[in-house]
Amino acid sequence: VSSEIYQWVRDELKRAGISQAVFARVAFNRTQGLLSEILRKEEDPKTASQSLLVNLRAMQNFLQLPEAERDRIYQ
């Protein structure tokens, strides 16, 4: 997982004009609270716990989908 993931998520929230709650639900089936905590802490993926890595990997995989497909999912 790239250490850029945190910025990618922030950029996607702005680009798509969606809330953290929507992104958390569709990208990795978690709550806004968890996403907020992940973004606030910005732990280095190289030293992250296994559970954090699973979530970061799910977010990264979601962000690799084509933009149009992500936008459809947000609706």
Rank of each mutant, 00 (worst) to 15 (best):
L34D: 15
Q64G: 10
E69D: 13
D44A: 07
A68Y: 12
T47K: 12
I18Q: 02
G17E: 15
F23W: 05
S19C: 07
L35E: 04
P66Y: 00
L13N: 00
E4P: 03
V9D: 01
Q32E: 14
L34K: 13
E67K: 08
W8R: 15
F23H: 03
K14M: 07
Q20W: 02
L34C: 14
R25H: 15
E69G: 05
Y6A: 03
I18K: 03
R30I: 05
L52F: 05
L34E: 14
M59K: 02
K41M: 08
R15Q: 02
A58F: 06
A68T: 12
D44K: 06
L63Q: 05
L13A: 02
L52T: 13
E4G: 15
A58S: 10
G17R: 13
I5M: 03
L56E: 00
I5V: 09
A48F: 03
Q75G: 14
K41D: 07
Q7I: 15
A48T: 05
A21N: 12
M59D: 06
S19W: 01
R40E: 14
S2Y: 07
D44P: 10
R30A: 15
T31H: 11
W8V: 15
S3V: 10
Q7E: 15
K14I: 11
S49A: 10
Q64L: 13
P66A: 07
K46T: 05
R10S: 06
A21G: 12
A58R: 11
G33K: 12
N29P: 05
Q75T: 13
E12Y: 00
A16S: 14
L35P: 01
V9M: 08
D11M: 15
T47C: 12
A68K: 12
A16H: 06
E37Q: 10
F28N: 03
F23C: 04
K14W: 05
Q7G: 15
E4Y: 14
N61W: 04
A58M: 13
A58I: 07
N29F: 06
R30S: 14
R15V: 00
L56V: 01
I18Y: 00
Y6F: 05
K46C: 10
V1C: 03
E67D: 08
R25E: 13
S3W: 11
E42Y: 00
T47N: 13
R30W: 05
E12S: 02
S2I: 07
A27D: 01
L13D: 00
P66L: 01
K14L: 14
G17Q: 15
F28K: 03
Y6V: 02
S2V: 06
S19L: 02
L53Q: 11
E37A: 10
S49H: 08
I5A: 00
Q60H: 09
N61K: 11
Y74F: 04
R10E: 08
E43W: 04
I73G: 10
S49G: 11
P45D: 00
A58T: 09
A27Q: 02
E69W: 04
R15L: 00
T31Q: 13
T47S: 11
A58C: 12
L35V: 03
F28W: 03
I18A: 06
Q60M: 08
D11F: 06
V26A: 09
L35N: 03
S3P: 12
Q20H: 10
E37W: 04
Q32P: 12
R25Q: 15
Q64W: 10
S19V: 02
S51G: 12
R25D: 07
G33Y: 10
R25I: 05
Q20K: 11
Q60W: 06
F62K: 00
S3R: 14
L13K: 01
M59W: 04
Y6N: 02
N61C: 11
L63K: 04
I18W: 03
G33Q: 14
K14T: 09
R30H: 12
A16G: 13
R10M: 05
R57L: 14
L53N: 09
N29L: 06
E37Y: 06
A24F: 04
L52P: 05
F62Q: 01
P66S: 09
Q64I: 09
A21P: 11
V1T: 03
E12C: 04
S49T: 13
S49M: 02
A16C: 08
I38A: 06
N29G: 08
Q50Y: 12
R72F: 12
T31V: 02
R72C: 12
N61M: 09
E67L: 10
K14C: 10
Q50R: 13
V22P: 07
S51I: 06
Y74M: 08
S3F: 09
Q64N: 12
Y74W: 01
N55S: 13
Q75R: 11
L56W: 00
F28I: 11
S2K: 13
L65P: 03
S49N: 13
Q20M: 08
L53M: 13
L65D: 01
R15H: 04
R57P: 02
L39V: 02
S36I: 06
A16F: 06
R15K: 01
A58D: 13
Y6E: 00
A48P: 02
Y6S: 00
A16V: 10
D11P: 03
Q50E: 15
L52C: 12
Q75C: 15
L35A: 09
Y74S: 01
G33E: 15
N29T: 08
A24Y: 03
Q60R: 08
A68E: 13
N61D: 14
E42S: 12
R10C: 07
V22R: 08
N29K: 11
N29A: 05
L35H: 04
A48N: 02
K14V: 14
L53R: 09
K14E: 11
W8H: 15
Q7V: 15
A16I: 03
S19T: 15
L56Y: 00
T31N: 10
E69A: 09
S51T: 14
Q50L: 09
S2W: 07
S19K: 06
T47G: 10
R40W: 09
G17D: 15
E37M: 06
D11Y: 11
Q75M: 13
R70S: 01
E4D: 15
D11K: 12
A68W: 11
I73E: 15
S2F: 06
E12G: 05
R10L: 07
D44R: 04
K41C: 07
T31A: 14
E42V: 05
L52N: 08
L63W: 02
L13F: 06
E42F: 03
F28C: 09
R10A: 09
D71R: 05
P45N: 01
K46S: 11
A24I: 04
P66N: 07
L13S: 02
E43T: 09
E37S: 09
V26R: 03
